[in-house]
Amino acid sequence: MTAIRCINVCKTYHQGRDEIKALDHVDLAIDEGAFVCVSAPSGGGKTTLLNAIGGLDMPDSGEVWIGDTRIDQLNKGELAELRLRHIGFVFQAYNLIPVLTARENVEFVMEVRGVPSVERQKKSREILQEVGLEDLEGRRPAEMSGGQQQRVAVARAIVTDPSLVLADEPTANLDSKTSEGLMDLFAKLNKDHGTTFVISTHDRRVMAHARRLVKMLDGCIVEDIRQKGT
């Protein structure tokens, strides 16, 4: 079953007078339960691709499908709903809402979705335990290290059981040991929950964890490697 399908997707940015082709006729299909790394140098189009898949950004042309839904034609409200119900996000930085504690951050999406508080608490505790942060649930982001913050972000991304988690350079601000730990966590969650993971990175060690590696350059997919085992 295909989780994501991009057909002939194009996206052009204007930076000053220059035109930047962030996505240049990209075709990509990702299966359910996959663990995919998208790698590219800076400006290679990986963030744009993730944003297009996550419904954060509209492609100029082409089609983006999540499961059976073509999302590039949805309106803002429908996109918000899609993100809320089916997609978990982990960003490079500023992942958490500073005024909320770790647990409140994890519960944020559920709360917006209107999940009753008892269920929220139960789930968020479980997930925080799963990512190894059960002792820090009352801390605010400013009181946690970068790695802890990213773990909270991961917990938030998967707590609603999304079918897809998009992580845009989640390890960019972390040291190598913490990065390893985070990638192990991704892999474990991918295995335990069967969630599709798409991770963008330019870190080789991160790429090593992926079962499939999509390499991009100047908005085009230049290589699509399926690695065996992990």
């Binding site: 996550g54 918000a80 993100r83 992942n95 999406v109």
Partner: peptide, 16 residues
């Protein structure tokens, strides 16, 4: 701005 962007990205509605 960034937090607001984050909340929107996570699916919070503009009305909220």
């Amino acid at each position: 701005v960034r937090e607001i962007g984050l909340m929107l990205a996570l699916g919070m509605r503009p009305a909220s």
